[in-house]
Design a protein around this nucleic acid. Structure first.
Lengths: 327, 327
DNA sequence: CCCTGATATGCTCAGAACGAGCATAAGGAG
DNA sequence: CTCCTTATGCTCGTTCTGAGCATATCAGGG
C-alpha cells in the first residue's frame, strides 16, 4: 500500500437548497462575489452561484454538521432534510485555479426546505428550470428541443472523428433525449446536461477553450464554475428519489390538499400526472391520511386537507409516489 | 460569503471492489499494514482493510481517474464499472489521528469486476457476508437474528434514557430489522449496520470508548476504522441499484445461463427467487437474449446460454432485474 | 435399454396494480 | 337558478406478479 501524501487541497461544502413555491422548483443561489478571480461570462447578467462554505476540521464533527453550521450562519436557515449528493473534484472545475495554489474538492449536499424563507442579502431563489429549460414538460414538449437542441446535437454527432464515434454519440443522444424509438426518461437529468456540455451547447463548456464552435446555441442559464453540473446532479437525485422515498413531504406544508401535492410532484418530475390515478396511488400506498378539515380556496368544491403518514415507512418497503417512467 | 480557509486535510480514495464467485459476493480486502498506528482489536485475527490510495492533484484529472490509477498500480486490476459511492469525513473515523495532524477525508468508490483475478501480495477476496452475516437470507432467516441481534437490540432499546427515546429506538429497530409487522427490507443494509453500531453491537463501536457494555455480542467480522461502514454503504448501493440498473451484468461472464444469473442476483440480494418468474422477468424485460449455444455442465438438461442485451438501455427507462421488495 | 434424478423450460391462473376515462358532488360567481 | 370550477368516487380493460403444475432433456446406474 502506497503511503498517503497530503496534497495541496482545499475542501469545501456546497449546498443545493431546494424549495418549491408556486409550482416552481427553486434553488437558493447567491450572486457571484465581485472579488472572484474568474471573469464573468460574455453575458451581461452576473452568474448564479451555489452557496459554498468551508469545513472546519476542529469544530465540525461530521461533514453534514459542518454544512448545517455555515448554512445557519450565512443564511439563517436551519436545514431539515439534507443528504450527501456527490463529491466534485475534477481538476478543471475551477479553471482559474489550475496551476495555481490548490485543487478544490467540494462535497455537495442536497437539502429540501419547506418554505421560501427570505434569503440573505446576496441570495435569491432561482427557478431551477431557468437553468434546464428542456427539463420542464408540464406545458408539453419544450419547443427548444426540436428547434435548437436536437439539431445542434445532430451536428455534434456528425462532427465525430470516425464512424464508431458517430455511432456512440448517436446512441448517447438517443438514450438521453429519447430519440428514435427510445422514450424520454425524465430521470436522466444529469446525462442530458453532461451530453450538452460535451457537445459544447452550454456556456460553461466553452470557458476554458478557444471558441471553435461558432454557431452553437447557449442553452439555459449558466452558473459559476461547475455549479450547474452540481444542480443537475441534485435534480437528477430528487427525481430519482421521488419514486421510492417520500421526499416530497419535506417540501410541502404539514397539511395540504391532494392537488397541491400533485402539483408539487409535477413541478419536480417535470410533467403532468393523471389526477384520479395520483389520488388513488398516494391513498392506497398509505402515504397520506385525511384530516377532516377542508380547504376552501380552491375555486370549486372544497378539498379535504391531508397529512403525511409517517408510519408508512414502517409498513412499505419503498414508499414513493407512484410515477410512470416516461411522461 | 465566508472565505475559504484551507484546513489540515488529507484526501484519499477508497475502493470497494466487488466480485461474485461461487455464489458468494466478495470484496477485495488487504491485510492491515503492520505499521498502522492503531493497535489491533482484541481479536487475534488481523483486521481487513479496504484498498486505499492517494489523490495526486497534478496527475489525476478526475477523482475516478485517480482511483483507477492507483488500483492499477497496486493490484494490477484495470477497473471496468466504477461509480462514486460516498464521501466519509467524520472526525472520529480515524480515532488515533484525532487531535493529531490531519483530518482524513475519504471519497469511496464502488467497482464491480467480473473475475476474481488473483489479488496482490497482501490482498485477498473476502466473503462480504462474513462482515454482515445477518444480511444473507438465502438459507432462510439467519438464526443469529433471533438468538443474538434482536434480544441485544431490545436491551439497547430499554437502556434508552427516557420514554421518547425508547419509542424512537423501537421504531428504528422495527424499520431496519422488520419487526412488529414491518417486513424485512433487504435494501436497508446501511440502516441496519448503523443501528448495530449505535447499539454497540459491532466491535468498531467500542474502540474509542470505555467498554461500558459488558455482555454485548460482537456481530460480524470487524474491519479497520470505518471500513465496514463503507462496505455497508456499498452493499446498500448495489442492492438498491439491482432494481433499476443492469448492474449484475458487470459481474457475470459475457455468456451465462439464466440460473447462473439468478444465483448471482440472489447472492447480492441475499434471498432466493422464484425460478420461473425470474426467467420470465428478465426475458420479458428484454435484458437478455439467447445465443443458441448450450451449457452442458448443469447436471440435468442442458441450459441455453444467454447474453446481455445492451440495447435494453435505449428501450427501457429503468432496466433492472425484477425483484420483490421483501424476501 | 429403461429408470431415476437432476435441471431447464413452457404454461396456467388468480389476484394486484395500472392507465384512461366517465360520472357525480359541492362550492362560488353572475 | 345556471354555469363554471374543482373534488371525489367508480368502472373497465390491460398488464404485471406470485405461485404452482407440467413437460423436456440431459447423465448415470441397474
Amino acid at each position: 500500500m502506497r503511503e498517503l501524501k497530503p496534497g495541496p487541497f482545499e475542501i469545501g461544502l456546497n449546498a443545493v437548497i431546494v424549495a418549491v413555491t408556486e409550482e416552481t422548483p427553486r434553488v437558493l443561489a447567491v450572486q457571484q462575489p465581485a472579488a472572484s478571480p474568474s471573469p464573468p461570462d460574455r453575458h451581461d447578467q452576473p452568474l448564479d452561484t451555489l452557496p459554498y462554505g468551508p469545513l472546519h476540521p476542529q469544530r465540525d464533527r461530521t461533514l453534514e454538521l459542518g454544512l448545517r453550521g455555515w448554512v445557519r450562519e450565512q443564511t439563517g436557515i436551519e436545514l431539515g432534510y439534507a443528504e450527501q449528493l456527490y463529491t466534485f473534484g475534477d481538476r478543471n472545475r475551477a479553471p482559474d485555479f489550475e496551476g495555481g495554489v490548490a485543487r478544490i474538492i467540494s462535497v455537495a449536499y442536497l437539502a429540501l426546505v419547506r418554505e421560501t424563507v427570505p434569503p440573505g442579502p446576496h441570495a435569491h431563489w432561482r427557478d431551477c428550470y431557468a437553468h434546464f429549460p428542456w427539463e420542464d414538460w408540464r406545458e408539453g414538449r419544450p419547443h427548444q428541443l426540436d428547434d435548437q437542441i436536437l439539431p445542434a446535437l445532430d451536428a455534434w454527432q456528425s462532427r465525430a472523428p470516425d464512424q464508431q464515434a458517430r455511432k456512440g454519440r448517436r446512441e448517447r443522444i438517443d438514450i438521453a433525449f429519447g430519440c428514435r424509438g427510445a422514450s424520454w426518461n425524465w430521470e436522466r437529468v444529469l446525462d442530458r446536461y453532461e451530453l450538452l456540455y460535451e457537445a459544447g451547447l452550454v456556456a460553461e463548456a466553452l470557458r476554458g477553450r478557444s471558441k471553435r464552435l461558432p454557431a452553437a446555441p447557449s442553452l439555459g442559464r449558466p452558473m459559476l464554475l461547475d455549479h450547474r453540473r452540481i444542480l443537475a446532479t441534485a435534480l437528477d437525485r430528487i427525481r430519482g428519489k421521488l419514486r421510492y422515498r417520500p421526499v416530497v413531504f419535506e417540501l410541502i406544508a404539514p397539511q395540504f390538499t391532494l392537488l397541491q401535492l400533485q402539483r408539487l410532484v409535477e413541478a419536480l418530475a417535470g410533467f403532468r400526472l393523471h389526477k384520479q390515478n395520483f389520488r388513488r396511488l398516494v391513498e392506497k400506498a398509505g402515504l397520506v391520511e385525511g384530516t377532516h378539515r377542508l380547504h376552501h380556496n380552491t375555486g370549486g368544491r372544497p378539498a379535504e386537507l391531508f397529512r403525511f403518514r409517517r408510519e408508512v415507512i414502517r409498513e412499505r418497503p419503498a414508499p414513493g409516489v407512484g410515477l410512470p417512467s416516461s411522461p
